[in-house]
Design a protein around this nucleic acid. Structure first.
Length: 524
RNA sequence: GGCCCUAUCGUCUAGUGGUCUAGGACGCAGCCCUCUCAAGGCUGAAACACGGGUUCGACUCCCGUUAGGGCUACCA
């Protein structure tokens, strides 16, 4: 790392809200920000947007930090590392937000409003919508421009008709507004957004974007609770943290003109924007709980390697323009480019994640593999067997596991003999009915017992010799043994597993299988 | 409903007016290897949403339709 280049002025941020674990979509956003910062020798900032006091928790914050660290996305400024632009928790920046809010009010760009908020009955919203569209036809449009006295639902129905959103509170003079405050009325601060203007910006990924102010309407800057809204806090924070590029999900695309409006009224220059396509579930709906695991920590738990996770996430929406698919961290940084990013949303493909994971597992050294998989080894195994036995078992599955936690269902029989319920029905029915089966299960264990130098080549010699003697195909000898030992007709190589499991255990299990064979009433 | 974004194999994608009988990867099928399963190697099936333009020529440019997604909160 000699010859380190000087930091550029590129400053990007990842700004999760700690209302849940780190989502795969969020992880990808973080990754792209991180790559962009590293690529340009810039600064990657982590800001926690914890202004939703009801849903933000310390545990979630910690979980997000953990996940980011696990993915290897280190931040240059933010929680636990500090920085010149602290604090990095949005809740601690409230004073700053309010200072800017006051400036907007004093400059006449904002006004206090004491209307009832509309957002309370969010749950009923879809029902309300249906009711309205079914029973009423709002073709007229202009029924009362001011939502102040009308029921919330009605205002909403009207706003669907494209009526410019503004209440009559804007008519109050500043001293009237002051009076409102003086009597302790609950008020929100709203940004004046004049209709008839166009807000345009160039999205790095999508190109020229144009929005009309009449589609936006007056925006709440500070809620009646005294807390800044997301769009406002976000602008103040991005501006004061001197963020140069805002790289975020496409779900923020329509927030951008609102935020640009705030930058303008504040006399600030907006940063560059890049809106990443969203990640969808296999049904093309936005990725959510019902699609199964969505949090990064869930993938960590089942034994996805962070390298695989990152590589997989990288390729949803980005590609190097050639046919490479597997990248080291340095290669990603060297090749990453925001302008090549896909515009359409991508579907999360678990199969491919598993494939990547398998590939990365196989490139691990044996030592590294053992180290990583060891934490997924069930406690009973560790109690039952010595560490070198466990290690041998684990190595046997190195190119068979798609995710580390899979080891339990793959290798359990190394630690416990199959009982009668463990035998796979299909395996038993298909393999254990040959004429030679009984004899094989009797003779082979006896011959194996005689081996002095217990190792796989010797085991193989003995079994091959027997097959030749009896003019049997090797598989006709091996398969019954495999079923007897493992309970299934699929397993790692028999000679290898035999070497590990030992002749005594083989004899024991073969004998048990013979007994089951004899039992007329045994059904698998 | 309004505003906005998007549209190549099932999925992730290459493709920037002729090189496309559309390339790669996952998955799938087959073959090889082989004691089974994996891993690995090889082969194969599989796509330009639809309709109009523009052009000598459209996957590539424009318009519309359709479909999917986002926003439309005093959530973030």
């Amino acid at each position: 790392m000699e010859n380190k280049e000087a930091k550029s002025n590129v400053r990007v941020r990842f700004a999760p809200s700690p209302t849940g674990y780190l989502h795969t979509g969020g992880a990808r956003t973080a990754l792209f920000n991180w790559l962009f910062a590293r690529k340009h020798n810039g600064t990657f900032i982590l800001r926690i947007e914890d202004t939703d006091e009801k849903r933000s928790t310390h545990e979630n914050t910690q979980a997000i930090l953990d996940s980011l660290r696990w993915l290897g996305l280190d931040w240059d400024e933010g929680p636990e590392v500090g920085g010149d632009f602290a604090p990095y928790f949005q809740s601690e920046r409230k004073g700053l937000h309010l200072k800017y809010a006051d400036r907007l009010w004093r400059d006449g760009h904002a006004y206090y409003c004491d209307c009832e908020p509309l957002g309370e009955e969010r749950e009923e919203r879809s029902e309300v919508e249906n009711e309205y569209s079914a029973e009423n036809d709002y073709t007229g449009g202009t029924r009362g421009q001011y939502g102040i006295k009308t029921p919330a639902t009605q205002v909403k129905a009207e706003s669907y008709q494209g009526v410019f959103k503004r209440c009559k509170c804007i008519e109050r003079t500043m001293s009237e507004q002051l009076k409102l405050l003086a009597v302790g009325k609950a008020v929100a601060l709203k940004l004046k957004v004049e209709p008839g203007e166009e807000i345009s910006f160039t999205d790095i990924i999508r190109g020229e974007m144009v929005f009309k102010t009449e589609d936006i309407g007056d925006q709440v800057l500070v809620k009646r609770t005294g807390s800044p809204t997301y769009n406002f806090a976000c602008v103040v924070d991005d501006a004061t943290m001197e963020i140069t590029h805002v790289i975020r999900g496409e779900d923020h695309l329509s927030n951008t003109p609102k935020q640009i409006l705030i930058y303008k009224k504040l006399g600030l220059t907006p940063p560059a924007f890049a809106h990443l396509p969203l990640i969808l579930g296999m049904d093309r709906a936005r990725l959510s709980k019902r699609h199964g695991a969505t949090s990064v920590s869930a993938y960590r738990e089942i034994g996805i390697l962070p390298e695989a996770m990152v590589n997989f996430l990288l390729l949803i929406g980005w590609n190097p323009k050639d046919e490479r698919e597997e990248f080291t961290r340095d290669e990603m940084i060297a090749n990453f480019d925001l302008t090549g990013i896909q515009k359409a949303a991508g579907v999360f493909n678990l199969e491919k994640l598993f494939w990547f994971n398998g590939r990365y597992i196989r490139t691990l050294s044996d030592e590294e593999y053992l180290k990583r998989i060891y934490e997924y080894v069930p406690a009973e195994w560790k109690k039952a067997q010595r560490e070198d036995y466990i290690a041998e078992v684990l190595l046997l599955f190195k190119d068979r596991v798609t995710h580390l936690s899979e080891i339990e269902e793959l290798a359990w029989w190394f630690f416990r003999a199959p009982n009668e319920n463990d035998f796979k029905k299909e395996a038993w029915l298909e393999i254990m009915n040959g004429e030679q089966v009984e004899t094989v299960l009797k003779v082979i264990p006896a011959r194996l017992k005689a081996i002095k130098n217990w190792e796989k080549t010797e085991i193989e010699n003995v079994i091959r010799k027997y097959a030749n003697e009896k003019e049997l195909k090797l598989k006709d000898v091996v398969q019954p043994l495999r079923v007897a030992i493992t309970g299934d007709k699929f397993s790692p190589g028999f000679f290898e597993l035999a070497e590990i499991i030992g002749s005594a255990e083989i004899a024991k299990r073969a004998e048990f299988a013979r007994e089951l064979l004899k039992k007329k009433d045994f059904v698998v």
